[in-house]
């Protein structure tokens, strides 16, 4: 049995707007073991993205406990959360969200620079990972000069280049055509198996669900189904 990368215990998130309270998540209990390839699905407003944000330390739960690699995310200060995200968590966003003025390689190097790696190491690792995501020859192109699929590959490379233990991907195929989405998912499976990275997705996309080994369905902020596929 693999140790857990993510543990959520009785996690509740309530948003308050003026006098109205919205329960985005209610009493979520979840364990994601190392190397898992899990998918959060459910209709809009079910709490998928909120749960990803809480696990990634981008937001704080109203109550409950969240641990990533044994560290209590819900109790961390902003600076500690930034360090956790920098060293242990990678993000892949729906809209790629690359830095437009940096080239593909520089975007991949960005996280490593924040980590304080030397220029030589950064360059070597970036070139290696870009080769793995099949972007050799496109390293010096800026995001605007790349297709959507290529940009998402750069985003994946950026997310995994610093060898995080967890990658959180929020609707990673939403802006891709089916063929590109298929290729991307194959790449992520490869990263999952070859780099031992734990993946958690939030998605509406059936393709993503088909690739996942575990399907967690959310509805109205509660887990209504948690099914592991062989």
């Amino acid at each position: 049995m693999e140790p857990n990368t993510v543990v959520c215990h009785q996690v509740t998130k309530v948003y308050r707007q003026n006098s109205v309270s919205v329960h985005a998540l209610t009493d979520i209990n979840l364990e994601i073991p190392k190397r898992d390839f899990a998918c959060l699905s459910g209709p809009s407003g079910s709490g998928k993205s909120t749960l990803l944000n809480l696990i990634g330390g981008l937001d704080k739960p109203t109550s409950g406990e969240i641990s990533v690699d044994g560290q209590r995310v819900d109790q961390m200060a902003k600076s500690e959360l930034a360090a956790l995200r920098l060293h242990k968590i990678g993000f892949v966003f729906q809209a790629y969200n690359l830095i437009p003025v940096l080239t593909a390689r520089e975007n991949v190097e960005f996280v490593m620079q924040l980590q304080g790696l030397s220029a030589g190491d950064r360059r070597d690792k970036a070139m290696q990972i870009l080769k793995e995501v099949d972007l050799t020859g496109l390293e010096n192109r800026r995001p605007a000069e790349l297709s959507g699929g290529q940009q998402q590959r750069v985003a994946v490379a950026r997310a995994i280049v610093s060898e995080p233990s967890l990658v959180l991907a929020d609707e990673p195929t939403a802006n891709l055509d089916s063929k590109t989405a298929q290729a991307l998912m194959e790449l992520l499976v490869h990263m999952n198996t070859d780099h031992n990275v734990t993946f958690i997705f939030s998605t509406h996309d059936k393709l993503v669900m088909d690739f996942s080994r575990r399907l967690i369905k959310l509805h109205d902020g509660k887990i209504v189904e948690d099914k592991r596929r062989e």
């Binding site: 990634g56 981008l58 600076s79 995200r85 969200n97 924040l114």
Partner: peptide, 16 residues
């Protein structure tokens, strides 16, 4: 703002 949010998510500190 959105780009800065992404940077924060990637682990950049507000100071940086």
């Amino acid at each position: 703002t959105r780009e800065f949010g992404i940077m924060l998510a990637l682990g950049a500190t507000p100071l940086r």
